[in-house]
């Protein structure tokens, strides 16, 4: 390696570090603040867990924990329903005639490509015009509509890569269509279904805009809408938001890293297996 290449490489590494710093500095700041229980670096109270204790203070616990519960109840209902609805739909969509399939695919992609704000407004107008009961009904229906396309989009590629003859062979060997679906098709598309479920779950948990537009005056708050109203409120930041944010951030980072680490390990194992095969 000559000097020019070394310079090039160190410059590009420096650039990557700079962008990473931009992305992570605010996050690191919040985590530091969560231990100083103060929005500055002075650590006037020293290293303290007061912020974390404030989460469990009886005065805060009700609102915060209700929001947490709502977030998870909504996410679980929405992701389970949309996974079932989406997986069944994907099996059907895969068999449609090309032209019909194109139209169905196009409409299905609408919530994905559309601006979230526009989707939220359209739900709001629709629910109000047809007098859907306020609160959970609207939120759950909105979240299901928003999550199902992601399930379908992650199941369809698995179905497309599946050889139709496997299913036909099962029928020829005497399986009923339902049995063939459960014993042959379902195991094959299961990875797609699982990743679709994971995607639906995270999208529902992460959602702010759909919930904010459609919660109305029901008083149902998820974590994100609760944070939003707490930030807008007159009393300003509550002491527990830095600790809560830090916990969520650390949780998310850990989960994403674990999922990706598994992927990397599986891929490197595959590569090794291939290398061994080639050597033989």
């Amino acid at each position: 390696m000559n000097k020019k290449e070394i310079l090039k490489k160190s410059l590009s590494v420096f650039y990557l570090v700079l962008v990473l710093l931009f992305l992570y500095l605010p996050i690191i700041l919040v985590i530091v603040y969560s231990f100083s229980n103060n929005s500055n670096f002075t650590f006037s109270k020293g290293f303290t867990l007061d912020g974390y204790r404030a989460i469990f203070a009886p005065a805060n616990r009700n609102d915060l924990f209700r929001a947490l519960k709502n977030t998870f109840v909504l996410a679980i209902i929405a992701s389970v329903v949309s996974t079932i609805l989406g997986s069944i739909a994907a099996i059907g969509i895969n068999q449609l005639k090309p032209k019909t399939k194109m139209v169905v695919d196009g409409v299905n992609q609408m919530p994905v490509i559309n601006s979230e704000t526009v989707m939220a407004v359209s739900f709001m107008l629709f629910f109000a015009a047809f007098k859907f009961p306020q609160g959970w009904t609207r939120l759950i229906l909105g979240h299901i509509t928003f999550c199902t396309p992601y399930v379908i989009l992650s199941v369809l590629p698995r179905l497309a890569s599946m050889d139709n003859q496997i299913y036909e062979a099962a029928l020829d060997l005497g399986a009923s269509p339902i049995k063939a679906l459960f014993k042959v098709v379902l195991p094959y598309i299961l990875p797609g279904i699982i990743s679709g479920f994971a995607m639906a779950f995270t999208i529902s948990i992460d959602d702010f805009i759909i919930t904010q537009f459609n919660k109305g005056s029901s008083g149902i708050d998820t974590l994100s809408t609760y944070l939003y109203s707490s930030l807008k409120g007159q009393d300003g930041m509550k002491p527990y938001w830095f600790p809560v944010s830090s916990i969520i951030i650390m949780l998310v980072i850990t989960v994403v890293l674990i999922v990706n680490a598994r992927k990397v390990i599986v891929e490197s194992k595959k590569k090794k297996a291939k290398a061994v095969e080639l050597k033989r």
Binding site: P26, L29, F208, S224, Y228, L231, I248, V252, V256
Partner: peptide
């Protein structure tokens, strides 16, 4: 950072 809620990131 895509996976962290945008309100939290904006607050940070």
């Amino acid at each position: 950072p895509m996976w962290v809620n945008f309100l939290l990131r904006t607050l940070a």
